[in-house]
Design a protein around this nucleic acid. Structure first.
Length: 550
RNA sequence: UGGGGUAUCGCCAAGUCGGUAAGGCACCAGACUUUGACUCUGGCAUUCGUAGGUUCGAGUCCUGCUACCCCAGCCA
């Protein structure tokens, strides 16, 4: 169920204009993750934007790893990012790495030095910081700023050859130490890092900084529209400076948009990492995580995620999208896709006293009333069944349509039953119900003799399959207006609830990632990690909406 | 107190040359219902941060305020 209703947004308008005016005949975008962590739904927003924008206008999109810092990046992340982007259903034109361009970047740096636009600085990092000035005070020029070009050339060569230790010197762009834009105060563009790179091994011991590397990567690939998040707005003058001074032929345009925030969760890599490291969740793909892998394990589909990304729009406003919006799109997608089945999460045994002992009859049930093509299945029915604890109340309030003493309800796909007797344990807890059924009310016979207000789900007791069912709630509690509060103080300690319930016997052969609608409960996914031959574990993706209030 | 941004319904978000406020989520009411689900119908901004100005007419133009976000990594 993909809805490709294209929503207008300011970036798309820019593209349309660029195409109409002939500035570009074809657009090329890119998704440039740094392979230093797992992708989350915020990345999905950027991925969807880049790929679909190019696709709409017959352009191309590259997947490019921005691997300019070997100390933080790993092959494992490259693998997971590729997996996630593919899973979302996007095909890149080219799979590239910033490290593919290290040679060219080095040559362009030499060009800058020769033009007097860059110099090797031997100030320490602390000194560089001091010389940089502050937000309100201009910086000072480094004593090395005006050293001879030949000297910088030699030193830069030596940096590359590994003749100098980490931190001893850097290559800086020579721009303006008094600029009100801190990024223009002679930014460092190359630093020495003696570390193995996942792609280039030990070939290099100097690595370009983002602000220098990124515009070159874009220009080299012929990227026309380089989309990034708001915090890079201040970097745009530097981006343009690099493209211009390095004399790149292709001129990419950087355009910034707001990153995604969703209520009741966290989105930064840093915070997600804390959740994993503090053991608040058990891994990056924990079903409570907003990571692509977490959402996948929870049971979200690529279509739902993409529809969500399309629906939230693109703008420059800092915003927080209601998490209910995400839930809406998975419900919508699974409505027609997920077969219905009955599962009892908190079992209460019911004995149907007038039903013959030792009789088991097979009943027919629709797999999806909203999608008849999904066919029917048969389910067993007998004298003993389980129903949901919350579907019975001994002393119900008004408007309680479910089972209570003397009341009659419909068992979905089976018969009407009436509750006659409540069995309790010593502590007064209801442990069993005795009911009677009416053979004339069998589902599918067209019985119209009388109506009942409630229909409840059930599972036949002797053949029911025990299953583990995991219910999730948001990781983060609704925040009150408390600034500077550590997000860990708002952690929802009840974000996971594990239940032992029963599912229909025909669930024996489910496979990991199979999705179902548990009748009257919500949508569930077969967990790929916890499910074993002995026991199936289901993750609740999302509950059904409900207007029922006790 | 420097620079860069943003302010349209509870939450997202469209709003071409100024012409008299799309849509989605949420919510409320009703209909339907073998899911208190779905679906359907109706309701949800006389108003676009605020104060002025220009104009026959301004969310869209001008001016002044206000609030919030980002920037002082040899991170991206």
């Amino acid at each position: 169920m993909e809805e490709k209703t294209i929503q207008s947004n300011f970036i798309r308008n820019i593209v349309i204009n660029d195409l109409e005016t002939g500035k570009h005949n074809k657009i090329i975008t890119r998704f440039p993750p740094e392979p230093n962590g797992y992708l989350h739904i915020g990345h999905a927003k950027a991925i969807t934007l880049n790929f679909e924008l190019a696709d709409e206008f017959n352009g191309e999109t590259n997947l490019r790893f921005d691997d300019t810092n070997p100390e933080k990046e790993e092959e494992e992340y490259v693998r997971s990012i590729i997996e996630d982007v593919s899973w979302l259903g996007f095909d890149w034109e080219r799979l590239l790495y910033a490290s593919d361009y290290f040679d060219e970047m080095y040559e362009r740096a030499i060009l800058l030095i020769k033009k007097g636009k860059a110099y090797v600085d031997e100030l320490s990092s602390d000194e560089i910081r001091e010389y940089r000035g502050t937000l309100t005070e201009p910086g000072k020029e480094s004593p090395f700023r005006n050293r001879p070009i030949e000297e910088s050339l030699t030193l830069f060569q030596e940096m590359k050859e590994g003749k100098h230790p980490d931190g001893s010197m850097v290559l800086r762009a020579k721009i303006d130490m008094t600029s009100p834009n801190m990024n223009m105060r002679d930014p460092v563009i190359y630093r020495i890092i003696h570390a193995d790179h996942h792609n280039t091994g030990d070939k290099w011991c100097i690595y370009p900084m983002y602000d220098y590397a990124h515009p070159l990567e874009d220009a080299i690939e012929g990227i026309t529209h380089s989309l990034c998040t708001l915090e890079f707005e201040d970097h745009r003058p530097l981006y343009d400076w690099v493209v211009r001074e390095c004399e790149m032929e292709s001129i990419p345009r950087q355009i910034e948009f707001a990153r995604l925030n969703i209520t009741n969760t966290v989105m930064s890599k840093r915070k997600l990492k804390v959740l994993v490291e503090e053991g608040i969740v058990d891994s990056w793909d924990d079903p409570r995580m907003p990571t692509i892998s977490g959402l996948r394990r929870r049971g979200y589909t690529p279509e739902a995620i993409k529809n969500f990304c399309r629906a939230i729009g693109i703008s420059k406003t800092n915003s927080v999208v209601d998490q209910q919006m995400l839930e809406h799109f998975i419900r919508e997608d699974l409505k027609l896709k997920a077969p219905r089945t009955m599962a009892v999460l908190r079992p209460l045994k019911v004995v149907i006293t007038n039903y013959p002992k030792d009789q088991v009859e097979l009943l027919e049930a629709e797999n999806n009333p909203d999608n008849p093509e999904m066919g029917v299945r048969t389910i067993p029915f007998s004298r003993e069944i389980y129903i949901e604890q919350e579907d019975f109340m001994e002393n119900p309030p008004k408007k309680y349509f479910r089972l209570f003493p003397g009341n009659e309800v419909r068992l979905k796909n089976a018969y009407f039953i009436k509750c006659n007797k409540v069995i309790k344990d010593e502590e007064g807890n209801v442990v069993e119900l005795h009911c009677t059924y009416d053979p004339e009310t069998k589902s599918g016979t067209g019985f119209t003799g009388r109506k009942v207000k409630g229909t409840i789900h059930w599972v036949e007791a002797s053949q029911a399959i025990p299953a583990e069912i995991r219910l999730y709630e948001p990781l983060i509690l609704d925040e009150e207006e408390q600034e500077d509060k550590d997000f860990l103080e708002n952690i929802n300690s009840n974000s996971l609830e594990i239940l032992e319930g029963f599912v229909e016997p025909n669930m024996v052969d489910v496979k990991p990632q199979d999705k179902f609608q548990f009748f009257r409960h919500g949508y569930f996914n077969v967990d790929p990690k916890h499910t074993t031959k002995e026991k199936i574990t289901f993750n609740r993706i999302v509950s059904l909406k409900s207007s029922f209030k006790l």
